[in-house]
Design a protein around this nucleic acid. Structure first.
Length: 342
DNA sequence: ACAGCGTACCGCCATA
DNA sequence: AGTATGGCGGTACGCT
């Protein structure tokens, strides 16, 4: 039901799609199955809830033929490089190896596609393929942290940033290793269809629309330029003072805009209402505290700004699916040796 | 589970 | 024509 409601909301906006919907992934011998699958899952999976205006997805290889995959399997590819001529978006999901030279046919096809206005995106070592075209010279890019120095050495004119999940240079986007490809996939959906649709896709994938907390010390999500606004600053401040009551009037005031505009801009940027977002942050924080401390539910309710244990339980169950007590029983660090799973 | 209270939300419209 | 703003008011929703 939620999906039907969503498509009704979104469909009218898709009426005039400003970009070429054909997404083509480049397959090659030794294809990185995981990186390839990230792209197929987001762009290839049928999404009737998005109406008829979703991407079209195809695969191509140097010449239409069988390509060797990994792990003792191969696949038949229907199209050759000529398919790239039609593509609006081209994905390079990894590459055979960082030392494997890129065939001139691929370099030429990618240059030509770029000249035509197609977007080039890579995951992991796929960045080496784009770099080989020379199109990354003078631009920022990233790749798997293990290959970052090799990329920098091979292509000194590229500004390699190993500390981000992905880099958006407009028509060219590169992402870090493996699962960071999913972050870039979602980023593209967000650019093309808006944050609500990206959140929706993330939910179908059962992953968080934003990577938060935990591992983020190592890889930080780049904040798109347009979001370095007063709104982004207010979000940061809000996140740091969840324990206090956060009223819309006050947040809008901090952002120096009217409540109406604040709410509009908030939804345009995050895909959810301020209230929903704040509750989500609070529940997230409660989850952390349940895992890593022995604080009582009442105490955590106060600390997270959810107020009372009743309110905490209510929202926690809605967002996480289990009660706070049950969650703590399963995931508390002190008891992690029990390894209780679902 | 309920009720009653206040805020949040969003469509609508005038305005810049 | 188009876009962004912000005020108003009804309703939905969350909190106690």
């Amino acid at each position: 039901l939620a999906e039907i409601k969503l498509s009704e909301q979104i469909l009218p906006k898709l009426g005039k799609r400003p970009f070429n919907p054909l997404v083509v992934a480049l397959a090659y011998d030794g294809l990185c199955i995981f990186e390839f699958s990230c792209v197929t899952e987001v762009f290839g999976l049928a999404r009737p809830e998005a109406g008829s205006d979703w991407y079209r997805f195809e695969t191509c290889s140097i010449n239409a033929r069988k390509v060797r995959g990994q792990y003792g399997m191969s696949m038949e590819v229907d199209a050759g490089l000529e398919r790239l001529v039609q593509a609006g978006t081209i994905w390079i999901p990894g590459w055979q190896g960082i030392d494997v030279p890129v065939p001139p046919a691929i370099i030429n096809a990618l240059r030509e596609a770029h000249r035509r206005g197609a977007r080039l995106l890579s995951i992991c070592s796929g960045s080496f393929v784009i770099a080989a075209t020379g199109l990354l010279d003078g631009r920022r890019a990233t790749t798997h942290w293990r290959c970052a120095s090799a990329l920098q050495r091979a292509y000194p004119k590229v500004q390699v940033d190993p500390n981000v999940l992905y880099v958006d240079e407009g028509q060219i986007m590169t992402s870090a290793g493996s699962a960071a490809g999913l972050d870039l996939c979602l980023h593209l959906v967000r650019r093309d269809y808006g944050p609500e649709m990206a959140n929706h896709v993330a939910r179908r994938l059962v992953i968080a629309p934003h990577r938060s907390g935990g591992q983020a010390q190592f890889l930080q999500r780049p904040i798109p330029k347009q979001e370095r606004s007063s709104l982004a600053l207010v979000l940061e401040k809000a996140q740091q003072s969840l324990a206090q009551p956060l009223r819309i009037s006050r947040l809008a005031q901090m952002a120096a805009m009217s409540e109406r505009t604040f709410m509009r801009r908030f939804r345009a940027s995050t895909g959810m209402s301020p209230g929903d977002w704040i509750t989500l942050q609070r529940v997230d924080r409660a989850r952390e505290l349940l895992e890593s401390t022995e604080l009582s539910i009442d105490h955590i309710a106060v600390q997270t700004g959810l107020g009372t244990a009743t309110t905490l339980r209510h929202h926690f169950r809605r967002k996480v699916g289990v009660s706070p007590a049950e969650y703590r029983r399963r995931f508390s660090r002190q008891r992690s040796d029990l390894h209780l799973v679902g």
